[in-house]
Design a protein around this nucleic acid. Structure first.
Lengths: 142, 142
DNA sequence: CTAATCCTTGACGCCGACGTCAAGGCAAAC
DNA sequence: GTTTGCCTTGACGTCGGCGTCAAGGATTAG
């Protein structure tokens, strides 16, 4: 299998495959004409990389998984180093989700506060001790 | 006030302040010697930018807030355009948190699965129908 | 034979929010 | 006077994961 087929079967591009090779993941054998040649095992490596990338793992973080597969293990996460990456990632995700949740709460708080302030100003300007706001528009009252 | 004081009081660097100016936020008056000159209102603008940046807003997303302040409103979020940014951001945060939570669940699942597989292999190799794993080490049994 | 489609290496582009360095001017402290 | 510390503009560097040419060689379809 050449690089184009590998890439498409792996759900990515030839550029990405060459990039992975340049990073030392996914090395390639060469045919007589200089073309890169891959087998099904390489496809498994590539798919392992893509799966973790889709999870948001850095490329470097995929290295233990790739090396685990290349060492002959049935799964990329059959090795302790891979499990350590999983655990570290879980921690990072928890921290990130926590931070984002806190930010979300603060933004929601700001929105509510700003809306209240706006409504106060509208009530003050449009009807100081007067009727309900919007009554003078009347368009929907037909 | 010159740029150094503004930056430190705003909790950032002179480089960032100049960058904001180059993006059209936070314009500066100039003293006779060419130095940038700022007042307390500029500091409020800068602090508004920093607050939103700390929330993870893009610089462009701070523009409505800054323009709102420059238009004389008491708060950067006193304008409809700012509220719209708040709401859009809340949606983005919810989507992001949702995605990350889903990823977290999948990673946790992978970890559990991989740990189970590892334990199965250990039990199979270390003690196929035999005694408990670790017993032959005995170091802690003293 | 030719055109179309693959493949090769090399190198620059991108994005955002600045960091960092260069070369020099202005100002205040000693 | 000179050292120190602020300021100026300009321009290149950073980070990750590739995208996108450019210029050419190999293979295959017609």
């Amino acid at each position: 299998m050449r690089i184009g087929e590998l890439a498409s079967r792996g759900g990515t591009t030839t550029r990405a495959v060459r990039y992975y090779e340049s990073r030392g993941l996914l090395p390639a054998r060469r045919a007589g004409n200089g073309y890169r040649t891959y087998d099904e095992d390489d496809l498994r490596l590539l798919r392992q990389i893509r799966t973790l990338q889709d999870f948001g793992f850095d490329l470097e973080e995929t290295r233990p998984f790739v090396e685990c597969l290349r060492a002959g293990h049935p799964e990329g996460d059959s090795c302790p180093a891979s499990l350590a990456v999983y655990r570290r990632k879980l921690g990072e995700l928890d921290a990130l989700i926590g931070d984002l949740t806190a930010v979300r709460a603060r933004v929601a708080e700001q929105l509510v506060r700003a809306e209240r302030a706006r409504d106060m100003l509208a009530a003050e300007a449009g009807a100081p001790d007067g009727p309900e706001p919007g009554c003078e528009l009347g368009g929907w009252q037909r």
